[in-house]
Computed example of a mutant assay.
Amino acid sequence: MLKKLLLLCLISLHFSTYSQSKEVKIISWNIRDFGKTKNSEELDKIADIVRDTDILAIQEVVAGYGGAQAVAKLSDILNRKGSKWDYVISNPTNSSKYITERYAFIWKTKHIKIKSRGFLVKELDEQVEREPFLLNFYIEGKKFTVLNFHSRPYNRDPESEVKAISKYILNSFTSPILLVGDFNINDKNDAFNNLKNKGYKTAVVNKKTTLKRKCYRGQYTNHAIDNIFYSKQIQKVDSKVIDFIKTCNNLDAGRDLSDHLPVFFKFSVI
């Protein structure tokens, strides 16, 4: 009897450890004008905000001088904070001069692996202003795909872009996938219905993620437009909007980092 109990305990411990090791933490963050405007002090503050995640997906990396350098510097700062990180940067999106951007992923290499450096989804080039950046990640041999996306502004029909990306995802993937980014529309918008009807869920629901220029009656957040959508093969563990502002006194300094708050999502691959 004692031997059976010990065996059951060992099996339980094995599966508990295995389950925990599959958990992944990802942060999606539109870091405004991420490039030469960010000094070393600001990059260090950004690193402190994201250092506990496994994967950081960045939107709005400057396409010209300074964007790639800022990503490399942030990765280097993170490397000096206790874990080994790697990064990839997309090519500039195929957009008009003042709209084109890059995307970036930075991740801890201990458990998260990649086999290629990702690509911009050219199939969507004609349907969106800034085509999303796709990268496949692997955790303990299990693949999951992340699409990093920054839509056009709210007054320029981001809904049609969301519908185009949704169609692409639903026609192209059966494996675990996350769509992360700044959608410039609320997660309750009907444009997301095609994804939701196929079982996709959101990391956060109607949580404001943009920062006002000034506090109004103690409130400094504005619109719920940043989120993470995930497929049925992804199991949610935890999620939140990371509020690094906390009080109105910190708003000006916080906006030096970005005018968006990051979205955090902890999950496991089923």
Score class of each variant (00 low, 15 high):
Thr37Leu: 14
Ile11Ser: 09
Arg217Pro: 01
Thr174Gly: 13
Asn79Met: 02
Asp182Asn: 15
Arg80Ile: 07
Lys208Gln: 10
Thr210Cys: 03
Arg32Ala: 09
Cys248Ala: 04
Ile58Tyr: 04
His260Phe: 02
Leu170Tyr: 04
Asn136Val: 03
Leu13Met: 10
Asp157Gln: 08
Phe149Gln: 08
Phe119Ser: 08
Met1Cys: 06
Ile77Val: 01
Asn186His: 09
Arg51Leu: 07
Asn30Val: 00
Asn222His: 13
Thr247Lys: 13
Ile139Glu: 01
Val121Met: 02
Lys115Gly: 05
Asn171Ile: 08
Arg102Asn: 08
Asp187Cys: 14
Ser19Thr: 13
Lys22Asp: 04
Thr37Met: 09
Asn186Trp: 03
His111Pro: 00
Tyr220Arg: 02
Leu13Ala: 11
Tyr138Met: 12
Asn249Lys: 12
Asp54Trp: 03
Asp52Thr: 10
Asp52Gln: 14
Lys3Asn: 11
Asn91His: 10
Glu41Gly: 05
Phe244Ile: 03
Ser21Phe: 09
Ile270Asn: 13
Leu211Thr: 02
Glu23Pro: 04
Ser160Met: 07
Ile89Val: 15
Phe264Glu: 07
Ile89Cys: 00
Lys142His: 10
Phe133Lys: 12
Asp182Ile: 02
Glu41His: 11
Asp187Leu: 08
Val162Trp: 06
Ser166Leu: 04
Ile177Asp: 00
Leu257Asp: 00
Gln20Met: 13
Arg130Met: 00
Leu5Pro: 00
Ile46Cys: 01
Arg213Ala: 14
Phe192Val: 06
Lys115His: 14
Phe265Lys: 13
Val162Cys: 08
Tyr200His: 05
Val269Lys: 07
Glu101Phe: 05
Lys84Phe: 06
Asp256Val: 10
Asn250Cys: 01
